[in-house]
């Protein structure tokens, strides 16, 4: 736990190859596809962040903390933490660290709603009700008793997360870097920037743990590269990414990862839509 140096302030601790391998091993030992489950958990966390009205940087931080927790905790064969609770704890923790803290009660309410049959999460809730009987609020009511129990679990998981990640709660995000880079390249436009940020936020949900394998500058450059291609913005000639200290291989890998994410997300959605109940159970800790 060395103090954060100059360079570390802009960067994140990365996982090692061994850590990734052990995560993969862990995935194999489970009946359910680990990537799929992690993706569902990430989507749940992002959705909860929006309902909690948290700024995206807080949500992004919580997603990265969650990924770090996965690697540290699962990779070493510790007790599996409840998917929902871990997600709740990470978002509660990152909100606490920000200027926009939320109460455990709000967190419980939001998750109860998101995992209920009335959920607006496309692959968890019921198909849009056929107007006749919209599901009532009873389905996501959290009683005082169950709130107390859940809060205990969240707070316990919070300390579990903190000790697992060695209190490395500092997360350097690529978003602002990307904006700076776009301006430096002189191609700033609303359309391009929107696409860049979409890629960066998509990358947060990716089960490939992009934010743990690559530094923010590489993520930003790859998102710009891909977005410029898609939007049709001409970037400068030459290997401009080298200016931002990114290598061709990294760039290629990340562009592929960002680019393939749309397909992956669509496949996941389709898959879970047929197994709503199973997913809900999995996330709620029943599975």
């Amino acid at each position: 736990m060395a103090p954060i140096t100059e360079v570390e302030h802009l960067t994140n601790p990365l996982v090692t190859v061994e850590q990734l391998y052990s995560l993969q091993d862990d995935d194999r030992n489970h009946a359910e596809n680990g990537q799929s489950v992690r993706y569902a958990q990430a989507v749940l966390t992002q959705a909860a962040g929006i309902l909690l009205r948290l700024p995206q940087d807080v949500v992004a931080t919580s997603l990265v903390l969650l990924q770090r927790f996965w690697v540290e905790n699962l990779g070493q064969g510790h007790a599996t933490a409840d998917l929902k609770i871990a997600s709740e704890a990470s978002i509660y923790l990152s909100a606490k660290l920000s200027f926009t803290p939320v109460s455990p009660r709000s967190v419980c309410n939001v998750y109860a709603y998101l995992l209920s049959t009335s959920s607006s999460l496309p692959f968890i809730g019921c198909p849009p009700p056929s107007a006749a009987t919209p599901p009532g609020p009873q389905s996501y009511y959290v009683s005082e008793g169950s709130y107390e129990r859940e809060r205990e679990k969240i707070l316990l998981c919070e300390s579990l997360i903190l000790s697992s990640i060695g209190f490395d709660v500092h997360v350097a995000l690529p978003h602002t870097l990307a904006l700076t880079y776009v301006q430096a390249l002189g191609v700033s436009s609303r359309k391009l920037v929107k696409r860049v940020l979409e890629h960066l936020n998509g990358g947060l949900l990716s089960p490939q743990l992009l934010y743990l394998t690559h530094q923010p500058n590489a993520l930003a450059v790859a998102a710009i590269y891909l977005a410029a291609k898609e939007v049709g913005v001409k970037l400068v000639d030459g290997n401009w990414w080298e200016v931002f200290d990114v290598e061709r291989e990294d760039l290629g890998f990340l562009v592929l990862a960002f680019g393939s994410f749309v397909g992956f997300a669509a496949a996941e959605k389709e898959r879970w839509e047929n197994e709503r109940e199973k997913l809900r159970e999995l996330l709620s800790g029943g599975g």
């Binding site: 103090p3 140096t5 802009l10 940087d57 807080v58």
Partner: peptide
């Protein structure tokens, strides 16, 4: 070691917030 100027990326300070909706 000096925390560089770019330290503003610190998540302490929301950089792009939806604060207007709060």
């Amino acid at each position: 070691r000096r925390v560089p100027e770019v330290a503003k990326v610190d998540t302490y300070i929301p950089n792009y917030s939806n604060v207007s909706e709060r």
